[in-house]
Amino acid sequence: MSEKNGRYARLFDRLKKNKEGAFIPFVMLGDPTREASFDILRTLADSGADALELGIPFSDPIADGPVIQTAAGRALGAGATPAMCFDVIKKIRERHPVLPIGLLVYANLVVGSSPEAFYRLASESGVDSVLIADAPLETDPIFARFAERENIDTVYVVPPNADDDKLVKIARVCRCYTYFLGRSGVTGADREMRAPDSRAMELLRGAGAPPIVVGFGISRPEHVRSALMAGADGAISGSATVAIIEKNLDDPGKTRVELANFVRSMKDATIF
């Protein structure tokens, strides 16, 4: 295992020892502006986020609900480009050398320049993992090959309709963490997660899956707790985090305060 993808392993080892789960906020890079985006990432990291999951804005995000769609639109409107997003990551990486950083992107951003160039930039800026929302396991191997060359882990999503065969396949290829969907549909806080399927989690673990993190429909501390109670190792919250940015667009100071409070309350819910 490379030094790089070791960041997730070391994080989950430490959390396990401390009997904690991971809380991972998601935000869109470049939202609402490049400068504000860096401040937001710094705030998340300083307030107790165990890792960061970051989006590069895409014009047609089919797996996202209105809040994250709007965030992508805001970022693109403010001139965000993949190159600019990687610059912001690089600055955060310099400031937080051990913090795991994952990217959540759409396939055309990866092929838009070339997969080689995309993964090289990701690697140079200090990214640990890449999840491509519209590249499911079955069509993906070529992306994973480019990722491996740059020591970047590929994350796959476990949907609620995955059969046992798919669970085993995903368990075998995931290395840094397993992204377990809390419910069907697209991202958004308006529909809450369902109680995660403990049987599917057990099956994943039995097949050697890395730590399981639940995402989609997680907006409150009780969602985090319920994910962990069901056997997950952590939780990701995207739309609820982004909604705080959206709500305070004209007040960056308030954005930072509310984000810090939100992350603290979510992180507290991971401690038993």
Binding site: I62, A133, D134, P136, L137, T139, Y156, V157, P159, L181
Partner: peptide, 20 residues
């Protein structure tokens, strides 16, 4: 198997749509 036309085509969708 994946509905390829030469190099074109494929099934680039969120995992949740694959079984469907």
């Amino acid at each position: 198997e994946f509905g390829k036309f030469g190099e074109f085509g494929g099934m680039f969708v969120p995992e949740i749509l694959v079984p469907t």
